[in-house]
Design a binder for these strands. Structure first.
Lengths: 198, 198
DNA sequence: ACCTGAACACCGTTCAAGT
DNA sequence: ACCTGAACACCGTTCAAGT
């Protein structure tokens, strides 16, 4: 005799996301998620294959949300600048700051996205590609379509490396971290827009 | 009546390191370590406070080993170049490649060092500082003592970000990763050595 | 068709009891 | 002084049994 479903994948992913934000990856247990959606943990396995698939869903949802934040940042850049939208270098700085702001606001989800544990699958590739679309548009304006991908990768590598160093405490000794970040991204934008390397 | 010690912290850390390399962080259990050193898991707690402290010791030992590899890389650079040692930019490229080579050879330990899990303490700060001493010397030659720290941080951020993107599969689509890395570090060296940003 | 209690095979960690 | 078995409080996951 059929029984009505008492939850859904969406609800499970939403609960998992909240728990990840609030108590961290280690606290994200199947039982905690189950309690959150009003069910016993074995029931979750009707909706997700295992905990790893749940993490994958959370990562993908996070990529989507990050994408929105980055889009917002470029919109803000357009509104602020002259009639035709801000210059690419300025946009790039705003995008980098939006990425870091997201990392600080949602550190656990940020880590899941950019430095997932060894055997955990990250977000769906298309989701991450989508998330950095705004960045790719900006680097295209900055260096042209030919080099835009490698420029976007360079910026992403630098920014994510900077942020993870920040998280692990590499900047504990000295200096204004905010300033170092702003300086770094400006410098990087200039280097990318400049003449080719020798 | 006293009983002779059947193991030591050093042996435990060595066993933990081997297990981490071979079966990953999830496989690094207290019982696996205990079995490796010929003891039962409760006995480990006479030598380390808990698993987290063991990870901390492994991270510190890893930092020391990485430091040696980076030193080797600069020595190689000196031997290869003209009588007086290679130019700074060339040294920087070699250091970056040595870092990446280490990451590929020992991915689990590399991750423990640069992107440790949220509540895990990384290596002892002095150990990491020591590890990148060769890098700091090189950036000093490249940009002078004033800006050497921020230059070293910029290079480290970019390289670690690049490598973690590589690990998470961000480069799956297209391009020679090796070439992109070499291109990036050369470009970065040029940008750092160049005129200040506008 | 979904939900559950019970069970299994693990974890890290503590502790009284042995030598 | 160190080592151990037993125990505790957890995990993720499976599965037969209920509705």
């Amino acid at each position: 005799m059929p029984t009505p479903a008492r939850t859904s994948v969406e609800e499970i992913v939403a609960a998992g996301t909240r728990i990840l934000d609030e108590v961290g990856l280690a606290g994200l247990t199947m039982q905690a998620v189950a309690a959150h959606v009003g069910v016993r943990s074995p029931s979750l396995y009707k909706r997700v294959r295992d905990r790893d698939e749940l993490l994958h869903h959370i990562a993908t949802a996070t990529a989507r949300e990050l994408g929105e934040r980055l889009d917002d940042a470029t919109v803000a850049a357009s509104a602020t600048g002259s009639s035709e939208g801000a210059e690419p270098a300025e946009r790039l700085v705003r995008l980098a700051h939006a990425l870091r702001a997201f990392a600080h606001a949602r550190p656990e989800r940020y880590r899941l996205l950019f430095t997932p544990p060894a055997n955990t699958l990250g977000p769906a590739p298309e989701a991450l590609t989508d998330a950095v679309r705004a960045l790719l548009e900006t680097t295209t304006r900055l260096v042209g379509p030919e080099d835009s991908l490698s420029a976007a990768r360079t910026v992403t590598a630098w920014a994510t490396g900077f942020i993870s160093m920040e998280f692990t405490g590499a900047f504990r000794l000295g200096g204004d971290v905010e300033e170092a970040y702003t300086y770094g991204i400006s410098r990087l934008a200039a280097a990318l827009a400049g003449p080719p390397a020798t």
